[in-house]
């Protein structure tokens, strides 16, 4: 499954990059994620409750942030195993400032599904992924405006 898209945020690349590197913020803004704990430098364990069309459940997954080039890019590696199937995805994230306090986040990657996840409902998954991505961007924007109102 291809994952590709972009979104513009009213903030500097630095701000966005730092937010994305912060486990607490990420846990807060990622749809479905209930916990996100650091298991090492740049590796995390996430527990997410997701309903993807016909398939719903609690997923536990490992995340790794690699090839970090602050504040421009990083590679997000996701590995999730569950009884209903496995997902492994590599997503390249890029941040490009397109103006003062305006940054375009782009992502490009591919998710490989196996097992029941692959077999059942794959056709609706890309739609679900789009929805989740939109939710994520919305939450990130909300978080940005919150931070701006209440700077830490």
């Amino acid at each position: 499954m291809q994952l590709k898209g972009s979104h513009r945020f009213p903030a500097s690349a630095h701000t966005i990059f730092n937010m994305l590197m912060d486990a607490d913020t990420l846990a807060k803004i990622t749809p479905g994620v209930s916990t996100l704990e650091a298991t090492g430098e740049d590796t995390y364990k996430a527990i997410a409750n997701v309903k993807l069309g016909p398939v719903s459940g609690s997923f536990s997954g490992d995340l790794e942030v690699a090839d970090k080039v602050a504040p421009q890019s990083f590679l997000l590696k996701i590995k999730q195993n569950s009884k209903i199937g496995n997902v492994s995805a590599n997503v390249q994230i890029g941040l490009q400032e397109v103006g003062p306090e305006e940054t375009e986040l782009s992502f490009d990657g591919k998710a490989n599904l196996s097992g029941l996840l692959a077999r059942t409902g794959q056709r609706v998954l890309s739609g679900v992924a789009n929805t989740l991505t939109k939710q994520f961007f919305q939450a990130l924007e909300d978080e940005l405006s919150q931070t701006r109102q209440h700077p830490a």
Binding site: P54, N112, L113, S114, A118, R119, T120, G121, Q122, R123
Partner: peptide, 11 residues
Amino acid sequence: NGQLINGSYMD
């Protein structure tokens, strides 16, 4: 990857 991606009556 050799995954059957339409293995249900929904697909």
